[in-house]
């Protein structure tokens, strides 16, 4: 069934057992909403120099947005900002692919569990759910470290 491509086991696992949920101390806090469906997230980032020491969050939303925040926490905590940006941009690329992009090995290496969201990109109404926490992270990081820290790298 096509639906299973969206609701991958990995996604349902993260939804039922979210990583790092709850608000802890941070350097910056943002609140993002998805006005079309009412998904909401409050997210805090904590940096140790350029290293992400914590991403904590509290939110309300569908399985896709909740699982995505959990995956974000799992992937980004402990990473250097540069690496984290690469992951965020790769995830964005995947989510904007409208199901046209078949993740290759290089992409899987970067995205790990987040590759499971490939199927979600086929559902335009749900892409925003998947991106909610990632946009919040980007925004919070800009607030914590300055705008330049998360500028899109244009080739």
């Amino acid at each position: 069934m096509k639906l299973d491509s969206m609701y991958q086991e990995v996604i349902l696992d993260h939804y039922k057992n979210p990583h790092g949920k709850g608000l802890r101390e941070g350097d910056a806090e943002v609140h993002h909403v998805n006005p079309t469906c009412g998904d909401e997230i409050t997210l805090r980032v904590r940096y140790d120099g350029e290293t992400i020491s914590d991403v904590s969050y509290e939110g309300q939303g569908c399985s896709i947005s909740q699982a995505s925040a959990s995956v974000l926490n799992e992937l980004l905590v402990g990473k250097e900002l540069g690496q984290a940006r690469t992951i965020q941009e790769t995830f964005l690329e995947l989510m904007q692919s409208r199901g046209q992009l078949e993740p290759d090995e290089a992409m899987e290496d970067v995205l790990e569990d987040a590759v499971a969201f490939a199927g979600v990109s086929k559902y335009p109404a749900r892409v925003k759910c998947a991106l909610l926490s990632w946009m919040a992270w980007k925004d919070a990081t800009a607030q914590a470290l300055g705008e330049d820290s998360v500028k899109e790298r244009t080739a």
Binding site: M6, C37, G61, C62, S63, I64, Q66, Y123, R126
Partner: peptide
């Protein structure tokens, strides 16, 4: 979440 209900 209703989003998930609607999708399924």
């Amino acid at each position: 979440h209703p989003h998930d209900v609607g999708q399924v």
